[in-house]
Amino acid sequence: MIRVVVADDHPIVRTGIAGLLDTEPDFEVVGEAASGEEAIALAAETAPHVVLMDLRMPGMGGVEATRRIVRSGHASAPRVLVFTTYEDDDQILAAIEAGASGYLVKAAPAEEVAAGVRAVVAGQTVLAPSVAVALAQAARGGVGDPGAAADTGAAPDPVPNLTPREREILTLVAQGLSNPQIAARLFIGESTVKTHLLHVFEKLGVSDRTRAAIRALELRLI
């Protein structure tokens, strides 16, 4: 069973998410918290696998609570999955940097929430490409001269030859746009966007949008 603590200061939201997770045969909600302080206490008391953490709560917010839970020093410290209202919440990046394993949007379908929880338990990271790119940029201290190469003594990775359209679509992916949004922005069909992305994945040697965005940043393609 996957043991989950739900932390959210809105009782209706908290109860609704707990009820949703309880309908899954492999989930058990072992606690509900209305603040960061309560989330920390429950994480220590109930030994959950995952804490589904709201970011904006009275008292201690989700970012600091995430940091303390992840860095508690316990061998069985749970993973933290941010649960936010907006994809552009300015605290998402801070929570990820504090140790959260990813984030979900509260408007996400029930199956997506369940899949996200299972993914972080399996050791995966649940991130939108735009957040992944922001993290990569922060880790590098920002993007420098596109023509510059790090002096590591090793031969640089070969840079795939992306078409202008593929670069354009990949840039929009990194900005967080969905396939329908990209199609509307570029006045092309959604199937065309998918085809271009498949070609990009193959050229970059990746299997999803997030890894494509990060790889493109590493190679300074975007």
Score class of each variant (00 low, 15 high):
7 A>D: 01
8 D>E: 11
13 V>C: 02
15 T>W: 06
18 A>K: 00
32 E>P: 12
33 A>K: 04
34 A>G: 12
36 G>N: 09
37 E>C: 07
40 I>N: 05
40 I>L: 03
40 I>P: 08
49 H>C: 04
51 V>P: 08
52 L>W: 00
55 L>M: 10
57 M>G: 03
61 G>Q: 03
62 G>I: 05
65 A>L: 02
66 T>W: 07
66 T>P: 03
69 I>H: 10
69 I>K: 04
77 A>S: 08
77 A>T: 08
80 V>Q: 04
80 V>T: 06
82 V>P: 04
84 T>Y: 05
87 E>S: 15
87 E>C: 15
90 D>G: 03
92 I>T: 09
98 A>K: 04
103 Y>P: 01
120 V>N: 02
124 Q>D: 13
125 T>W: 05
128 A>W: 02
134 A>G: 09
139 A>N: 10
141 G>H: 05
148 A>H: 13
149 A>N: 09
152 T>P: 06
154 A>S: 14
156 P>S: 01
157 D>V: 13
160 P>E: 09
164 P>Q: 11
164 P>A: 06
169 I>P: 05
174 A>R: 06
185 R>G: 05
190 E>W: 07
190 E>S: 15
199 H>C: 10
199 H>V: 15
206 V>Q: 09
207 S>F: 10
213 A>S: 12
214 I>P: 08
214 I>E: 13
217 L>C: 13
219 L>V: 11
